[in-house]
Simulated assay, not measured.
Amino acid sequence: MGRGRAKAKQTKVARDLKYRTHETDFGALAQELHGSKSDTEPSAPEEGDDEWAGYQDPRSD
């Protein structure tokens, strides 16, 4: 028991996805798929910056 509700919900979601009209930004999708460079990529740390400078090994006590 309970499988009927899950299947009905899946069917409802699938039908909604199939028939709903979506505003798709194909330009952004193409950039994401092709891996083009953008400002959202994390920058590399500068030479003087140490990412682990504040880390203290808990086993060293």
Rank of each mutant, 00 (worst) to 15 (best):
A14R: 11
Q56Y: 03
P42Y: 02
G4F: 03
K12R: 12
Q56S: 11
K18P: 00
Q10D: 12
D39C: 03
G54Q: 02
A44L: 13
Q10W: 04
T21G: 05
G4V: 08
T21Q: 12
Y19H: 14
G4A: 09
T40R: 08
A28G: 12
A44W: 06
A30Q: 10
Y19I: 00
D50P: 01
K7D: 11
K9V: 15
P42S: 07
M1V: 08
L33I: 08
V13M: 07
A6D: 09
Y55K: 03
D61T: 07
K12T: 05
G2R: 09
E23K: 13
T24I: 15
M1I: 05
E47H: 10
A28E: 14
D57H: 01
K18R: 13
K9N: 10
R59Y: 12
A8S: 15
R59G: 01
D57R: 05
E32K: 14
E41I: 04
G4W: 06
W52L: 13
A30K: 11
G27E: 15
A30G: 05
D61N: 09
A44E: 14
A6S: 11
G48L: 10
S38G: 15
D49P: 00
H22K: 12
W52P: 00
S36Y: 14
S36R: 11
E41A: 11
K12C: 01
Q10G: 13
Q31G: 06
D16M: 03
Q10P: 00
T11R: 14
G48D: 15
E51P: 09
Y55G: 00
A8M: 10
M1G: 12
R15E: 13
P42K: 12
T21P: 02
R5Q: 12
G4I: 09
Q31S: 10
S60I: 09
P58C: 04
D39P: 02
S60N: 08
A53I: 04
R59W: 12
A44I: 08
P58Y: 03
K18N: 02
Y19A: 01
V13I: 14
E32V: 05
F26I: 02
P58M: 07
K12A: 14
T11L: 11
G48W: 08
D25A: 03
D49M: 08
Q31H: 07
K18L: 11
Y19S: 03
P58N: 07
L33D: 03
M1W: 08
S36T: 14
L33F: 06
A8V: 08
T21L: 10
K12H: 07
G35H: 04
S38D: 15
A14N: 10
F26G: 00
G35Q: 05
E46Y: 06
K18W: 02
D16N: 04
A28S: 12
E46M: 04
L33M: 11
A44N: 10
R5N: 12
A6R: 15
W52C: 02
R15Y: 04
Q56N: 08
Q31M: 13
A53F: 01
D16A: 09
